[in-house]
């Protein structure tokens, strides 16, 4: 892991600021050595961090799954099915990440009494995109996703708020 520093302001060790003392040359050599040195040990840190991230419990609410007719989905014994709002949020994010002209910057799923009441989606669009039609398409896709995931809500289609937070040149998933 040798990362070459990028000088951007004209400063260099060989210049007016370089110490004109006997150890200057040794310091240069030590600096080259430290830049090229791979101290090792980061792999363990990486694993530990990613494991902690994976175990992070994001606050979530249960969403009751419904049948196609809007009734509560349960088996003959009366057992019902719930989906965590965390799962809903993740599914909405993945759906939004598949688009070309926009990318998600934030996803929030509001739940009240086991119903998804609102999805708030922050989007970054590529320059030149018709943001109104993009928002309308995304809104429709999210509503379809919700129906396929937790069934239709008898209260009606879930509100999906789209907030275009930025416009960028190029693929918004990359820039």
């Amino acid at each position: 892991m040798a990362v070459e520093p990028q000088r951007d302001d004209g400063d260099d060790l060989v210049g007016a600021d370089r110490p004109d003392v006997a150890g200057g040359e040794l310091l240069d050599r030590a600096l080259r050595a430290v830049r090229e040195d791979d101290p090792g040990g980061f792999e363990g840190v990486r694993s530990s961090v990613l494991e902690r991230v994976r175990r992070t419990v994001v606050p979530a609410d249960p969403v009751l799954v419904r049948r196609a007719d809007g009734g509560v989905d349960h088996d003959p014994d009366g057992s019902r099915t719930w989906v965590s709002s965390r799962v809903v949020r993740s599914a909405v994010r993945r759906l939004a990440q598949r688009r070309v002209a926009s990318a998600p910057a934030s996803v929030q799923v509001d739940v009240d009494e086991e119903h998804v009441t609102r999805v708030r989606l922050g989007l970054v669009c590529s320059y030149g995109t018709d943001v109104r039609s993009e928002a309308a398409e995304v809104r429709g896709e999210v509503q379809e996703l919700l129906v396929s995931l937790v069934g239709p809500d008898p209260r009606g289609a879930v509100d999906v708020d789209i907030d275009v937070v930025d416009v960028v040149e190029g693929d918004p998933r990359l820039v």
């Binding site: 990440q97 970054v124 693929d171 998933r173």
Partner: peptide, 20 residues
């Protein structure tokens, strides 16, 4: 999914949307 490397800004946005 794009094959190119995402910029820092794009990665930050994705994390903001919950992308581990």
């Amino acid at each position: 999914p794009p094959e190119e490397e995402a910029s820092d800004a794009a990665l930050v946005r994705a994390v903001g949307a919950g992308d581990a």
